[in-house]
């Protein structure tokens, strides 16, 4: 019954490996960009705050499919943006998908982090300012480290959502798990329930440990007050 899984026609591990790569690269991008956005949203500069707020509200409320398709049809086809070097269309699409996923997920990282910033007592920042630290030093040395520790659990949810959202990259032909699943559904229609089960299992293998490890980490790094 599991014959088709061994078929050289389907590279199941390869597809999931690409899913992992999409998750890791866009996860890192989202973390960095989301942190910068959160910094903007709490900054004393009105222009920065306005940009952060506008970005988060526009991008967060746009369907991910639209963003991913836009990176391919809008950025690449219309504007010719390939994100560094040539490469074949597959690696261009991969990079575009990472960009789209990171840009989208960063809004959720930003909002999780901002709620974390709100849990850090006002006195912490005041004490740091009273020592003579500037805005960025206060943010980087005092506020963000404590904010991150309090939002590990919500960030785990964002990361799990991101892992599953990478399936949208199938829309622009990135050969990750969902694209392979589509192909297998067409070719193996007699074992369709099995195909679904295999892919569901594959994603659970990726996301369940993420949740468990980060749940443990969140308790481990919690700041005692």
């Amino acid at each position: 019954m599991f014959d088709f899984l061994d078929s050289p026609q389907y590279n199941l591990l390869g597809a999931f490996w690409l899913t992992v790569q999409l998750t890791v690269f866009s996860g890192i991008g989202a973390l960095v960009w989301g942190t910068i956005l959160a910094g903007m949203r709490v900054s004393p500069v009105p222009v920065m705050r306005a940009f952060g707020t506008a970005y988060v509200n526009v991008v967060r409320n746009t369907p991910l499919t639209l963003i991913i398709v836009f990176t391919s049809l809008g950025l690449y086809n219309s504007l010719g943006i390939t994100l560094g070097g040539g490469g074949d269309i597959e690696s261009i699409n991969f990079r575009l998908a990472v960009l789209g996923l990171a840009a989208y997920t960063a809004t959720f990282v930003c909002e999780a982090l901002r709620s974390g910033i709100n849990t850090v007592g006002l006195g912490q920042a005041e004490a740091a300012r009273a020592l003579g630290l500037g805005f960025f030093q206060v943010l980087w040395s005092i506020v963000l480290p404590q904010a991150f520790r309090s939002v590990v659990a919500p960030l785990a949810s964002v990361l799990i959502a991101l892992t599953k959202n990478t399936t949208v990259a199938a829309a622009i032909g990135v050969a990750e798990a969902a694209l392979l699943m589509k192909e297998m559904i067409e070719n193996e229609s007699d074992a369709i329930l099995l195909v679904f089960a295999v892919f569901a299992f594959g994603f659970i293998v990726l996301t369940l440990p993420t949740g468990l490890v980060l749940g443990w980490l969140s308790k481990r790094v919690a700041v005692k007050r």
């Binding site: 004490a127 480290p145 404590q146």
Partner: peptide, 8 residues
């Protein structure tokens, strides 16, 4: 009043 030592 509330010390405000850096908790982390």
């Amino acid at each position: 009043q509330s010390f405000n030592l850096f908790a982390h």
